[in-house]
Design a binder for these strands. Structure first.
Lengths: 210, 210, 210, 210
DNA sequence: AATGAATGAGTATTCATTCAT
DNA sequence: TATGAATGAATACTCATTCAT
């Protein structure tokens, strides 16, 4: 995303492909060894390019990880709210919509649990990743609170901003727990409980169409 | 090669004090520079002892952080459930109990937000910290689900294990968000929303005494 | 952890020269300070390269010493038996051949007595050096016993394998004593005695041509 | 042997026993881990005394190893020549005497092959051990050459000093090879060859009584 | 006499980054 | 554009030795 002073911006097809090869290799390496266990040389080797080429495209390994995360987040972000809107349109109940959101959230968190770990750890370690995560969080919660306001008639909650955050928190943590740890009860029960909690919290009647 | 690398177990008062000085210095250093930014030398210096002394008491910096975390967790763990039990005994309503738990949770997470960040990052990075956190999580959720079973008459939820986990997740993530990030709405609104969500989820009538 | 720690195989002329510079510097340093008194940094400095370059070419200081020894041994090994064969062909007596072998052995052990000390000590300390020395010993003694079998008519000894070893032992120890210690009688007397002992032991008539 | 400035000279029985415990422990540790792999703390621990006590009796680990070697050598030295003298007196042949010496030499080298390795390596590494070994060597060879002079009538050799050294060298190296390496032919054949070589070298008639 | 806590200089090794080719 | 040899600061950890108790 952020290209500094002497960093090469790939124009030709071959260069773009080379940059993508580096990103893919980095994902694999970060997933295998974590952030601190991975080094630039290892990424370059895995990508089949020289270390010099690595530094031609990225200032350091942190930059490449930020690029990876941006890629990921933009993929996730788009889909979720679109499909929720569609569900509403189809006359789904509150609970059905939440259940669907849980399902979508799950899918988006399970591409690579190992990489997810790395991302999660980095937001507690580094300001840039923290800012990154914070922006993302703000984005999601404000979209959600905006959405809630459009259906305020059906809701029991009145403080939409706070509700949006609390719900997002409950979602995220449960997703991460399922993805990165061994959960102590089956996934389905956990997701059903999450759906139930959020549904009865948000909606006057969770089982009525919106 | 050789095998006389035993860790010193402090017996005399002065030794115990020295070990505690190291722990305190480590907390401060980890808080300031994070795990990877802190080294044994820095901890020793901050504690006013030699590097050799550091290695006499701790095998490495990871060990000292694990020791710090254990110390923290055992402090937190004990108090919460005791006071909940007392509240129940005093005839508090479900909502009052949850509100109280939120308050207590908040207090326990705000000793050192910086150290909390380090702990949270480590659980995604290192097996030992992960195991540590997992044990703690299991401990809390099983205690909670046991408690829920004792008051099952007042509850709307039936799957106590799943409920305990989902509620714990919502709690934890909100606590961490408040402690480590700049929340986007005021803390009180967030905590009120959390209290509300958990209360209406768990209890048949959140405002009746248990 | 990571696996991209490959050892650089020098391709270009300048690299080969750099590797050789390191080997030469190592020989000098090991000779001056012994194995345990020498460190990679000192070798790098003596070679006029950085410590990083040292580790690019050699995994550690042991490896470079093994390389040096291999280089030495292969040089020595070849010449000795060739010239013995030539002497036989020229119609030399047994004693003349032994005397010549002593002379050659002496020459090959006197490149660097200090380095010889290091090599000798290492074979008692480290498995790899021991194996190295053992292979060399086996090689020499089996070549020698093979040679003895080709001239069995002239010999008083019948157990060629045992003879080869005992003779080699007497040779080696005397060479080492002369090279590394201050001998208590003059070298020439010692070598004459050695020649005499081996000659009368091996040959029916030491002063007859083979 | 050499006790410096603040080194304690044990007077009481308990102290002497403590010193001996340290020496025994050191023998075991040096044997197990070699000289450089052993440290003072390890020796103290193995001896069941404190590190302070170690330094009360020995200036460093080198000193204790020198003490061990002195102990060993003095034990060996005495016996060999005495029994040879006795054999001569009994009217043994030259070959019988040599064979007997080989047997005795073998016995004295097989107490602890591991410790022998350490001793042998140290003489190539350290001046003090070298001097030590050199003195021992001089002692043995001069005794031997003195003995040879007493039986000069029976000998083919005339340069007794040189002969004594060459014979000693052959002896030592073969002993060490048998003790520290895996010999490539059976011990008995090797020892018989050694006996034969030395016998025919030294004596006019190896099978006549002296 | 005996202890063992404390010291800190010293060592091997890694890895982000540069730059001549 | 691409390469990869070269750099050297930085780091974790050890161990001989001292000295207050």
């Amino acid at each position: 995303m952020s290209e500094q002073n002497t960093i090469r911006v790939p124009q030709q097809a071959r260069s773009i492909e080379k940059k993508q090869r580096l990103v893919d290799a980095a994902m694999s390496e970060f997933g295998k060894h974590g952030f601190h266990g991975t080094n630039a040389k290892g990424i370059a080797k895995a990508a089949g390019v020289s270390i010099g080429t690595f530094y031609a495209y990225f200032t350091d390994k942190k930059t490449i990880l930020l690029a990876i995360i941006d890629q990921h987040l933009s993929q996730i972000d788009q889909s979720v709210f679109k499909t929720i809107a569609r569900k509403v349109h189809e006359g789904a109940t509150g609970r059905e919509i939440i259940r669907h959101a849980v399902k979508m959230g799950h899918a988006s968190h399970h591409h690579s649990p190992e990489l997810l770990r790395v991302m999660l750890s980095m937001r507690y370690i580094d300001k840039d990743f923290q800012r990154n995560a914070s922006t993302e969080y703000k984005d999601i919660t404000s979209k959600l609170s905006l959405f809630l306001k459009t259906i305020s008639d059906c809701l029991r909650v009145t403080d939409m901003e706070a509700a949006a955050q609390v719900v997002t928190n409950a979602f995220e943590e449960t997703m991460h727990a399922v993805a990165t740890a061994q959960p102590h009860v089956e996934q389905t029960r956990l997701y059903e409980a999450l759906t139930d909690m959020v549904s009865v919290y948000l909606f006057k009647d969770p089982d009525a169409p919106l």
